[in-house]
Structure formats: structure tokens, C-alpha cells
Design a binder for these strands. Structure first.
Lengths: 235, 235
DNA sequence: GGAATTCTTTGCGCTGGCGCAAAGTGCGCC
DNA sequence: GGCGCACTTTGCGCCAGCGCAAAGAATTCC
């Protein structure tokens, strides 16, 4: 049902969820979707709400945050165009495990649980892709868990920045710019520390010319040396 | 190809991976499996080995541990009968993200990547189940991540024990016995701390009659009060 | 049954990084 | 174009929990 422009169609075709599917299959799947618009700072779903839909972002950016029992927040993931959200929450009778907030105006495709179920049965390649995506995320989560359990804050921050650079970094003259507005608070939530600690570390790195920092912005000037910190090879 | 006893067949049928599948489907899937035996302390696969197979445990118990870059270990999960291992690593060209060690003599079913792929296409219900399992694990991992990021050690230990009690606890006269030999070191790896800290906390709880501890053993005498600690309601 | 091994406890010193308050700074919005 | 707010920095105090060493139990192995 979704009305899609040509450039948007391209993004959708390139989405990991649709990898190796034929044009016909993708059309069939997209035809079953609803098109959703959400404004900056709008909330797509709340943690603990009954999960009814799965989403693919066409454009924009959505943050996934989780609130723990004691009120602390964790930034789980930031999701951009072509990526999938709430992968299979909708399949089972369950609740969303996190809150999804639009970081900017965004357009998304959505499918409800029943539709998704039908599509999974009709297009085995679709479930295969979903499995691969989930599996990769699981892997990343496990990695982050291991890091958090065993490494010092500075190291975790270096790793987080390098990972982000890999995912959304843009190479520019002055270094790798992270194409994403991340506050000190956001970074702190990603690596399980406080905004103060993040600020202190970044300031220190700035002095050592490893990064350029700004308001909600970090430019990696020397990814190599950062990688060293991440690996604890040298300081 | 697997030769299976009647009692083992029951375990297999009840495995989450085969939920809602017909008898015929399960037979077809199991027929495509290899039967594997592994001795106590034997290694099923090493972290970073190329992943070629996915496993379901018939009986026994397997530990999944991950080594981080700096040599620290994390205990990711302990897997028992009916549960699945290395869910879809085999589907993609990738490496095992962790090392799997048998905690006791174990028997498993295994499928290589190609076979699994074929089965996923042939039985959509199978991929659906795999998705549900992965998704639930993802959820647990996210929860643990959030905890680790924000909570104090004592609290994390309480949570870990309660979670274990839920998964493998046996109610006996003197409390809930964890049906699993877990050393202080194991517990420490689960919650990202040192064996010393675990020992100190357990000793303290012992004095407060919350638990009975022994060598590689913990009995929860007062789960209620432990739950309070886990929720930081009271001490 | 006793030696060797493995697991656990305990004491002591030390520090990374958190908590908070208060001041500083740049951005967005009208 | 400047006011107000959101974000960031910095200083200072402090303690939970780690590191390590060494001793003490419980198992296992011959």
C-alpha cells in the first residue's frame, strides 16, 4: 500500500532484509506494508508496549533505548535507512524490549505480526535474511557485553567510536566524521558509564590530537592511535 | 542418520526449535542430522573456528564462553537438553563467536550449513522457531547488558542466581538448588566481576542466611530476599 | 591414606571512575 | 541578533570493588 519514490525504492531494495530476493518478492512484501511517518523526537513505540509491528526505515534515524528496572538508560542501537527494527517482536505475543525514538523526521515501512508471519512462510528467503540479521546483532551484543564486563572505560569508548565510525562514519579532510548527533550522554549510555567520564576522556584525547570534539559531535583525527587504545597496545 | 532412543526422541520433540512442527517434519529434520558424542571437558568448537554446524543438545550440558581481545573470559550461556547451539552461524560464512565446552558427557544432533539452509527453505516453521529463539536470547542479552552497565555487583549476582534458579533450579527441602556445577569463577564471568568479589558477597549472604554455599554449589534459601536485593528494594 | 590439585576464603592496599555542584559555551528559535 | 536552554566541562571528594598473596578446605588421583 505504500507509496514510494524511486530513490526510496532503491534504499528498500538494498535493505539487508531483502538481500537476494527477486524484484517480485520484494514488491510483494512491500505491497503488504504500511507506510509510516514520524516526526523528530516522536516515539515509534514504548518499551513494554505490546509489540504489534516490525519496521524497516526508509529514511531518517531511530534510536533504541532501554530503561532498566532502576531507571538507568542504555542506548542499545541507532538504526538508519534500510535497517530493520523490532525484528520479530511482532511474531510472538510479547512486548517491545526497548523504546524507539525518531532522531529526525523519518519514514518507515511497517508490517503487523500476522502479515509478517504470512510473508515469512511465503518467502523463505525473507526469514533467512531475518535470521542472518538477528544473528549478526546477537554477535555484536555479545561482543559489547564481553567488553563491558572486562575493559576499562577509556578502552570501551575507543571501541564504541571506532564501531560507530565503521557504521556511519564519513571520511573528510579533517578525519572521520560521525554522521550522527551523539551527545556525551548517548555515548555514556552505550558503554555503560557517565557523561562526566566520557567528557573527561574526550577532552584528554582532544589534547592529544586523537579527536576533534564539538557539541554532539566527534571527529576521529587519528583512528590508528584510537585503535591502539582500543586494543590496549599503547597510549 | 541419527540413532535415537525413545526417551531421547521425547526430548527432541519437545525442543523449542521444533515447536508446532508435525511429527513428519521433525522426523525429516532429525533424519538429516548427524549424531555427535562428546566427552566431559571436550570442546565442541573453538571461538573463531569457521562455523560449519548448528547443534541441538539431546543430553548433557555445554558451556559457551567467549574470550575477549585482552584475554578475559565471559561466560555467555550454559545450554542443556533440547536447546540449540550456534543457531545460525553455519548459515553464513562466519566463525563461531564463542567456544563450546562440554560440562559433562553429551550427545548432540548437528547439521551443516547447507543442510540447514535446505531445511529452512523446506520447513518455514523451522525458521520461524529459530527466529523466536534468537529473538528471546537477544532480549536476555540486552537485559544483561543493561544490568551490567548500570548496577552494582551484589545486585547483578542476585539477578544472575535468580535467573539460573529459574532455568535450572530444583526445589528441595533446604531451598532451590542450582542443578549445575558453577564455580565462583564461572559466576564472576557471568556478571563481569572477579571470583574474589563473588566469594565475598556469597559469604556475606551465607551469614545472613540467604544462601547455603559449597564448593561449586549454591542453594538459595531465601529467594524472596534475594529478589529484594536484585531489585534494590531493601537489604 | 596421603599427596597433589583445584577451588575458595580472607586480609590489605589502592585507584578508577562515579556523584554532584557550579560554571562555561554554543545552538536554536523567535 | 540575542535570549534561553541544552549540552559540556571542571574541580573535588569519596568508595566499591579489584589485584594479589597466602592460607585454608574439599576433591581427585595413585
Amino acid at each position: 500500500m505504500a507509496k514510494i519514490s524511486a530513490s526510496e525504492a532503491k534504499i528498500i531494495e538494498a535493505a539487508p532484509l531483502f538481500r537476494d530476493l527477486t524484484r517480485q518478492q520484494i514488491d510483494d512484501i512491500v505491497a503488504a506494508a504500511n507506510l509510516l511517518k514520524i516526526k523528530k523526537n516522536g516515539i515509534l513505540f514504548h518499551q513494554s508496549d505490546p509489540a504489534h509491528s516490525t519496521f524497516v526505515i526508509i529514511n531518517g534515524r531511530v534510536k533504541l533505548t532501554q530503561l532498566t528496572a532502576d531507571g538507568a538508560q542504555t542506548l542499545l542501537r541507532v538504526v538508519g535507512p534500510g535497517q530493520i527494527l523490532a525484528v520479530v517482536s511482532a511474531l510472538e505475543v510479547m512486548n517491545y524490549p526497548a523504546t524507539a525514538t525518531a532522531e529526525r523526521d523519518s519514514r518507515l515501512l511497517s508490517w503487523d505480526g500476522k502479515t509478517l508471519d504470512r510473508l515469512f512462510f511465503k518467502h523463505p528467503g525473507l526469514s533467512r535474511n531475518a535470521l542472518a540479521i538477528l544473528s549478526a546483532r546477537m554477535r555484536e551484543m555479545q561482543e559489547r557485553f564481553g567488553e563491558l564486563a572486562s575493559q576499562r572505560t577509556e578502552r570501551r569508548l575507543a571501541r564504541a567510536l571506532l564501531r560507530l565510525a565503521d557504521q556511519v562514519g564519513k571520511k573528510e579532510s579533517d578525519g572521520v566524521v560521525l554522521d550522527m548527533a551523539l551527545s556525551r550522554q548517548d555515548l555514556a549510555e552505550m558503554i555503560g558509564t557517565t557523561l562526566f567520564s566520557v567528557s573527561r576522556i574526550l577532552t584528554d584525547w582532544q589534547a592529544r590530537k586523537l579527536v576533534n570534539i564539538g557539541r554532539r559531535k566527534v571527529i576521529l583525527r587519528d583512528p590508528e592511535r584510537l585503535a591502539h587504545i582500543a586494543e590496549e597496545l599503547a597510549h
